[in-house]
């Protein structure tokens, strides 16, 4: 978590260190929690042996840990980080603290893309790589379509709040198209789509999860290449332009990266709400900075932590999994309400 200049005080550097380490430790604890929690009780030492490839008392434990719990943990970590980074990029890009992949309709656009693949082409029958691959293609096409629309509208409609409302409307439009597709599809297709649509970190095998990580992690790192123009954008588009930044190229890059992150996470886990909206705020409030050289890595870390928290809660009942989208609003709504009510006290709003 380097990158802070001497232009920040010792105090704020200390804060950055403490908060980052705190988040890392909490993430580790939650990751461990995800591995030990579930409907089957497995002794701790046996879980450790599963992970290290040692001898296990019962072979089924190995399957549970390696094919269910480990994929869920990895998925939650990477998807949480991806959606949060996407949210931060969108908030800076649109200069709007309430922007996020789900509120701008990008997640729903991705969902529509997946729905077309799953329902219209019957892609749900495929397995392994092909399902994620075709869902991903659909999700990317959907996200790109919504981002293209948003970009076009944001040129005409200058107000950030109005762009946000247009995003919400695009989301409704895509939802309606999804409902139509569901109506005209086979029952099995609808069933698998509905399950996917509830949001799920645990639907996949280890192989497919590793494929998801291999696609998503590089894109998160690509976002780190945008730190300099992101910081320039904090001053507003006109100042950024006077600093030698190409505004149109920067906006385009930010949309491509945030769209790719949203599409990848949505294709794999279903549309997950709130994480992309609230996590950048959690990072800004705890670190007290808008400087992306600190904020961007911290948002990725906080996103991983939040994803793991949701996964942990979802795995707690012994009778099954709570859908992730039943949990994210319980965390997200209080946070976003606090932000709206207390925005006058928050530095980054002024």
């Amino acid at each position: 978590m380097t990158g802070q200049t001497s232009m920040t005080s010792g105090n704020s550097r200390r804060r950055t260190l403490i908060v980052s380490w705190g988040m890392a430790v909490i993430s580790l604890i939650l990751a461990a929690g995800c591995l030990v929690t579930g409907s089957v009780d497995i002794p701790l030492d046996q879980i450790a042996r599963c992970l290290t490839g040692g001898e296990v008392e019962r072979e089924v434990w190995r399957v549970i840990v390696l094919q269910t719990r480990l994929p869920m943990t990895l998925t939650a970590l990477v998807a949480g980080a991806a959606l949060s980074v996407a949210g931060l990029l969108l908030q800076t890009c649109f200069d709007n603290p309430l922007a996020g992949p789900s509120i701008l309709g990008i997640s729903t656009g991705s969902s529509l893309g997946v729905a077309i693949v799953m329902l219209a082409f019957g892609g749900s029958i495929g397995s392994g790589w092909s399902t994620y691959g075709s869902s991903l293609a659909g999700a990317i096409a959907g996200a790109a379509a919504v981002l293209g629309l948003l970009l076009a509208f944001s040129r005409v409609v200058r107000s950030g709040m109005m762009v946000l409302i247009i995003g919400i409307l695009i989301g409704y439009f895509a939802s309606s198209a999804i409902a139509m597709l569901n109506f005209f599809s086979t029952q099995e297709g609808v069933h698998s789509y509905v399950i996917w649509g509830l949001g799920n970190f645990s639907g996949s095998s280890l192989d497919r999860t590793l494929a998801f990580c291999a696609v998503t992690l590089p894109v998160i790192f690509v976002s780190f290449l945008l730190i300099k123009p992101l910081n320039a954008l904090l001053l507003g588009a006109r100042y950024a332009g006077s600093l030698g930044i190409s505004i149109s190229a920067t906006r385009r890059n930010l949309m491509i990266v945030s769209g790719a992150l949203t599409a990848s996470a949505t294709a794999f886990c279903g549309p997950i709400g709130f994480i992309g909206l609230i996590v950048p705020h959690i990072a800004r409030i705890t670190l007290r900075t808008s400087n992306h050289s600190v904020l961007l890595p911290a948002t990725a870390l906080a996103g991983a932590m939040t994803g793991l928290l949701c996964a942990f809660i979802s795995a707690m009942p012994s009778s099954g999994m709570i859908p992730v989208n039943a949990i994210t609003p319980i965390i997200g709504v209080p946070v976003i309400t606090y932000i709206i009510v207390c925005r006058k006290k928050l530095l980054y709003f002024s």
Binding site: L234, T289, S290, N291
Partner: peptide, 18 residues
């Protein structure tokens, strides 16, 4: 601008971006 959570030093540093 909405740069309230940047420090004075960080804000002036942006002038060095070129």
């Amino acid at each position: 601008s909405h740069a309230g959570a940047l420090t004075v030093g960080e804000t002036v540093s942006l002038g060095r971006q070129p």
